[in-house]
Design a protein around this nucleic acid. Structure first.
Lengths: 162, 162
DNA sequence: TAACATTGTTAGCCAAATCTAACAGTTAGC
DNA sequence: GCTAACTGTTAGATTTGGCTAACAATGTTA
């Protein structure tokens, strides 16, 4: 239970939480200047946001003493991280450069509905857990390069029990 | 030529331009109250934005006299519309509800890089221009429903020249 | 341990995009 | 062609999330 006054967070708020999560995972702690440099903002903006996120119980923040995520914050950070990875893998899968895949994942992860995130995750999983690169993906890659749908697409196939 | 002082627009500015474009295409004109109701804002916000977009030459706006798109505005509206359709078709393709596909397309169309938009358009085109629903998509649909990768995926296939 | 360098915070400002309340222009019906 | 109803606009407040400049706490090192 517990009155969950969870108003939805802004993209900006979510980015801070995600960044804090990443830093803590990678380094064990999250510093104001580093958060600032990752998010391309100045340190006072970070302090400001940390105060807001502390009020909303996503982080525990003591001035000059650093910041950690609460349970609520960790849970959100995890969701965002997974969503980010799904998006990025999908974009790379369809031929987007690593750089743009990363950049777009950062933005879109804050916009999509949970249903969409779920379906996309399934799709990426479906493709990537295949025993080998699925033919359709190879064909698509060829299609990207040549503009031509490869011959095999137009060919009769015969299934043989293995 | 012409000094193209095209600073990038905000998601909000783009939404107004897109909405105006849609209304003009569907009805021949775009009214303040209708723009407001589609975008879920109040009329004064619309007036305000129309003035800004007029300064930036995306629309031609005369108080009390309505608004039309400039060439620059039409071009942007067209890009956004195409991007929107691509995104929506993709989301529906992977099993997202029509409602969420629409909603998410609206948000994401303002965030993605042109490269990503292009690759995604190619992907959707690749799938949808196929002579019939590609097997992998059918298999994915089954995977969504049953959680099981269909047998055919695990089977040896043999290509026969037609 | 005192002074300096680094890091973090506060105060106060700004811009974007929204809102409400009050006002102005346009249009339709009588 | 007046007037009421509708539509659109202005003015001014609010919210969010940035910024700079000045200050405070912490940490480092001679």
């Amino acid at each position: 239970m517990g009155t969950d006054t969870t108003k939805t967070l802004s993209a900006s708020e979510e980015s801070y939480i995600e960044t804090i999560g990443n830093l803590i995972r990678e380094r064990g702690y999250a510093r104001v200047t580093e958060i600032a440099s990752i998010l391309n903002v100045k340190p006072p903006s970070v302090t400001n946001m940390l105060q807001k996120l502390d009020e909303q119980k996503y982080v525990t923040y003591k001035r000059y003493r650093g910041v950690i995520l609460t349970k609520k914050g960790r849970s959100l950070a995890k969701t965002l991280e997974r969503r980010h990875n799904t998006l990025k893998r999908f974009f790379v899968m369809i031929g987007v450069s690593d750089e743009n895949a990363e950049k777009d994942a950062c933005k879109i992860e804050h916009e999509i509905d949970p249903e969409t995130a779920k379906k996309l995750a399934k799709f990426v999983e479906f493709v990537q857990s295949a025993p080998r690169t699925p033919p359709f993906l190879e064909h698509f890659t060829q299609y990207l390069e040549t503009g031509e749908r490869p011959k095999e697409c137009k060919v009769k196939i015969q299934i043989k029990e293995s």
